[in-house]
Amino acid sequence: MQALNESGSFFLELFFSGLTRGSIYALIALGYTMVYGIIGLINFAHGEIYMIGAFVGLTVAGILSILQFNLIAILVLAALFAMVYAAAYGYTIEKVAYKPLRGSTRLAPLISAIGMSMFLREYVILAQTPDFVSFPALTEGLFDLGAFSSMIQPTELVILIFSFLMMAGLFILIKKTKIGKAMRAISQDREMAMLLGVNSDRMISLTFMIGSALAAFGAILISAHVGQINYNIGFVVGIKAFTAAVLGGIGSIPGAALGGIILGLTESFATGYVSSDYEDVFAFGILVLILIFKPAGILGKSTTEKV
């Protein structure tokens, strides 16, 4: 009985940590999927925007904690600044590295994106630090879970709640508002949407900004949970979020959310029950398998190429 109970709580622990991870992947995957849906580009620098969001958040949180603000104010302001800055970076990156390339070959924007991602990593190394730096545990004291704390940590609960709220907000934005309608119109047929008076350049910029802000929000939540960041955090998370986006069907927004959560749970259970050494191998393995057997993803529509 004791053993059963233990294995049960171990299972729940893994379940919640997987769910937490998954919701972060989902937040970042949304950025990939929105950009892909609207201009058919994989924004390789998305992971780097996530990383920059974390660093901006750290700077703001550091200053405010020196000024002795209270914890909730620090959290709110750090998240706000991180999102604003990430949006600004996303906007600038789109203008510099992608916009001049519209209408060129398929490979060109992709290489430009890789270059951008290298540039941003080095930029953070040079401007801040190549080492790990500790990130304040901003979300730790928000909830007191009492008896449940063996299954789920308070920081994890914060991540779950806020990321679901964010995603819900995004769904409403996409489905109910005029902006969302314009975005969907562009992703269906850009030229037709432009003919009907949609300012496509502005919508593309807006898409980059929203995606970047979501990534930065995720970055603040997960950094407060993990407790340290460095310049490299965007790389692996970026690939995994991309895997999540592909898993759910790239271009599909509910797909990205679903894909993120499935990927997070798989990873969590695999590391818990199989081996933690190969944690990243599982994610990449899933990616390869999906692309072979169902390239359109779970919720994606498979399209045939017309000649």
Binding site: V96, A97, L101, I111, I114, G115, M116, M118, F119, E122
Partner: peptide, 10 residues
Amino acid sequence: FGALMVVMMV
């Protein structure tokens, strides 16, 4: 390197 890749592509 990174900046060069972007500049070259553009």
